[in-house]
Simulated scan of single mutants.
Amino acid sequence: MTASVPYIPSYMDLSNGPEPCVVCGDAATGYHYRCMTCEGCKGFFRRTIQKNLQYHCKWSKGCVIDKTTRNQCQECRFIKCLNVGMATDLVLNEKQRTAKRKLIEENRERRKEEQVKTKPTESPPLNDTLSDQDRGMICEVVTAYEYTSGKVQNTKHKPEYEGAEIQTQDPESWQQLAEAMTPSIVKVVEFAKGVPGFTELNVDDQICLLKACCMEVMCLRAACRFDPEHETLFLHNGVNLNKSQIHEEGVAVLVEPIFDFAMGLSKLKLDKAEVALLAAILLIQSDRPGLKEPENVEKLQDAILGAFKRYVSENRPHQPVHWAKILMKVTDLRSISTRHAERVLCIRLDNSGEVPPLLLEIFNEGH
């Protein structure tokens, strides 16, 4: 992979220590408003948007912004925040912040109550009955999934690709695909943070799990926006993609399996909890290559799988094979992701330099 990788995948590799803040160069603490930044620049950007602050440079709007000068010129600092890609639309307003804080506090209180009720020696629930702990976990997973789902723009009447073929060797098509996936990658990362127990795993393992599941979760979300009657996928960026536009090569080869998967998934008629738990299972897989502490991942995986199975048993008592069909969808998605990785690698070898680094990263090249 080239050295000029966009900032989007930067959260995926922390093996050499903290990432530098893309605004001031100080040690970054995480992925904030679509960029890797420090707490200082994160807070500065958030306050600027929330309070609609206006700044004025005393010089010529060409100030150098680093960790020693970042407080000297607020206008140049804000301009640099925008130039590196920090997204104003991700800053929550007061109403959204209040709702989020309330949701977090309610989940925290619920978990405290469950810990008080649950004895350390409590045995697993019998007869496939959901425990209070199961219900709390499922609630948090569903909340995280729905909070990061986002709204798809409505372009039903005028699809961007209407009447057009997706070309095989066109670098612009690859770039469009990468740009369409960018916000979805951000949502996958945010969803993972909301899955109970994920942030308590080894940091390197968190990165490994995110890289491995990213394409699978995005395929699942795309499949959930599938219209089986018109064979149309509604992509996150508002593009409507009909199966009739799919041909045999290039980007099309990556998209076609998603149509087939989406058709099968639609027949299961999963509810919102089942979709969210399926996404959590895709995230927490203890057999991913490169895990440093797979036993901890497996423990969390077992907890989610157990709650998921008991949920299905309780809510679908007359559908005994429903659980097995859901597990088959995990296998299908992992197969699609593997085929995508192989295809992207082949295309890269045939057309050196045409596949954007972002796509090479999320298709797990090298795994």
Rank of each mutant, 00 (worst) to 15 (best):
L283N: 01
A28W: 01
L327N: 03
G43S: 13
D350E: 13
P124H: 04
I185D: 15
F261D: 08
I362H: 01
Y11M: 06
F259S: 10
Y161V: 14
T338C: 12
A144N: 07
E140H: 09
L53G: 00
I207Y: 12
N296L: 05
V217F: 01
A222M: 12
F78C: 02
I336T: 02
R97E: 04
A307K: 03
T148H: 12
G163C: 02
R339I: 07
P20L: 10
I284D: 07
Y31L: 12
N296P: 02
E274K: 05
E248W: 06
L14D: 14
P183L: 04
K158Q: 13
A262M: 01
N315R: 15
A273P: 03
L359E: 12
L210F: 02
Q319H: 11
L282M: 14
K299T: 04
N16M: 14
H367Y: 07
P20A: 11
A27V: 06
G43Q: 11
F198L: 03
L254M: 10
Q133K: 15
C76R: 00
E231R: 12
V239P: 00
Q72T: 04
E342S: 09
P357M: 01
E216W: 02
E361Y: 12
E94R: 06
Q115C: 07
N16C: 13
F78I: 01
F78N: 03
R111Y: 10
K112Q: 14
R111T: 10
V189N: 04
L233E: 07
N107E: 14
I336Q: 01
C21W: 07
A192Y: 01
N315H: 15
Y31K: 13
P18Q: 09
I79M: 07
N16E: 08
K158H: 13
G306E: 03
C224A: 12
A252L: 03
D66P: 04
I362A: 05
T182V: 13
V217I: 15
L126R: 08
E229T: 12
K299Q: 06
L358M: 14
V253N: 11
I8Y: 06
F44W: 01
Q167C: 03
E342D: 08
L254Y: 05
K299E: 06
K61A: 11
C21T: 07
S337N: 09
D170Y: 09
G238N: 08
K117E: 11
